[in-house]
Each structure stands twice: as C-alpha cells, then as structure tokens.
C-alpha cells in the first residue's frame, strides 16, 4: 500500500471512529442543545471521512469506495489512533477526548491545507479545517467551563484527563510512512506538531484549573492496526447493517 493511501486511511479512520463514538450520544446528551451540537460534530466528522476514505480508495485503485472501506474492513485494517476509540464514559470524558483530538486535528488540517504538496490532500483539508476550527473552539471552551466549574465538574474533568492522557502520545509518533510523507512534503512530521499541541493544551488546561498529568507513557499501535478491544465493539454495531444486508441501499 502506498504511503498516500495509508495516510488517507489514517486520517479517515480517525474521523470515522470518533464520529461514530460521538454519534452514540444522539438522544442521550445532558441537554437538548448539547445533543444537537454533538450530532453536528459527529456529522462533520463522518463527512470528512467520506472524503478521506474516498481518496484512499481512489489511490489504492482496486475499486473500493469509502463505504467499502468503512463497512467491509475488520479491526486490524483500521488505522485510527487509539484515543478516538476510547469509550464515551460521562459527558466530561467525551469532551476531554474531543478536545485532546481537536487540538491535534485542527493544526494538522491547517498545515495540510496550506502546505501539502499533494493537491487532493490539500483540498480535503481546506474543506475540513473550518469545521475543525469550530470543534476546537467549542471543546476548549467547554473544557475550561467544566474544569473551572463546580467541585464535581472539576473532579470529572481531571479524571477524564487522566483517563485519556496516555493515549495522546500516539498522535505524534512517526514511522516509515510518516517519514516518506514528510520527505515528499505531503504531510508534516507528526513529532513537529507536538510543541504546538503542548502549548495549546497547556494553556487551555491552565485556564481550566486542571493539572497536566506527569505521565508521558504513550499507548501505541492503532496506526498500525493494533487496537484495544473497544474497536471490535464499535465495528459490530457500525457494520452490522451493511454486512447483514449487503444489498441495502441508502
């Protein structure tokens, strides 16, 4: 598989799995306004998935569509980071996961839209970057409000931060694929995104009166197809319909 195809899968699988996770809140959010806001976020992410997986299928050249890639692959073929498959937990846990991802996602899309030497990648990023900017503005704002809120909301946000923290390092790890993409000017070196993420996350957490965890251990493997048990459960519900009724059409 080419590095470009692998890259499109990694981007698209991140947005697909996070989009599905967020969509699980539909009808369950604490208030109606949040329910709609979460559904909007999920739909934005699924829309971006269509573009990334569409590109992956096109580059692969075997006639697989975005739907094929979303619904007909098994867990070991998924290339998303482990963070996005982490369980929703309470609202704070969902929000913290969103913020930690958005703080990586938005600068990444911004870089791609402005700098990528691969035109198709830059075009997708250009479309996605405005949505990601709003996601980041919203999740950062809510992390601050809840972190610097009541005793209970502060405790829940600090717990959520501890719960996700060791899953953030994977976003900045680089392998041979990343090296090839960086050399070709298609995508940035993942490690180069780390200082900006540290600064942004540090600022928001400080304002939220949340302590940055000391632990710098990083769970890895998602980008190579080694996933936690969560992904299989996500796929079971997400892929059930097209697998049980292969002739079903929208």
């Amino acid at each position: 598989m080419s590095a470009l195809c692998e890259f499109a899968l990694r981007m698209g699988d991140n947005t697909l799995i996070l989009g599905h996770r967020v969509s699980e809140w539909c009808g369950h959010a604490p208030v109606l306004e949040e329910d709609i806001a979460l559904a909007n976020t999920a739909l934005d992410l699924i829309g971006q998935t269509q573009m990334w997986l569409g590109l992956a299928g096109e580059v692969e050249g075997n006639g697989r569509t975005a739907d094929h890639l979303a619904y007909k692959r098994d867990a070991w073929d998924f290339r998303n980071v482990l963070l996005v498959e982490r369980p929703n937990g309470d609202f704070g846990q969902t929000l913290m996961r969103q913020f930690l991802f958005d703080a990586w996602h938005h600068p990444m899309l911004k870089w791609l839209s402005e700098n990528s030497a691969e035109k198709r990648v830059a075009e997708i990023a250009e479309k996605a970057v405005r949505e990601a900017a709003y996601h980041l503005e919203r999740s950062a704002d809510l992390v601050i409000r809840l972190g610097d809120g009541t005793d209970e909301s502060h405790r829940r946000m600090q717990d959520a931060l501890a719960y996700h923290w060791t899953y953030t390092g994977e976003m900045f790890e680089a392998d041979a694929v990343d090296g090839e993409l960086a050399d070709a000017g298609v995508a940035p070196d993942p490690a180069a995104m780390k200082p900006g993420w540290d600064a942004l996350v540090g600022d928001v957490l400080a304002e939220a009166t949340l302590a940055v965890p000391e632990n710098d251990f990083a769970h890895k493997g998602g980008r190579r197809g080694q996933h936690a048990e969560h992904l299989g459960h996500i796929l079971a519900s997400m892929q059930f319909l097209p697998r049980a009724y292969p002739d079903a059409r929208w």
């Binding site: 109606l32 306004e33 709609i36 806001a37 909007n40 919203r138 704002d141 409000r145």
Partner: peptide, 10 residues
Amino acid sequence: EMAIKNARDV
C-alpha cells in the same frame, strides 16, 4: 457566549 454557540448549532 454559550447561547450564541448553541444557537449556531440548533
């Protein structure tokens, strides 16, 4: 501020 954000989403 949140009302503006919620209005945007709703």
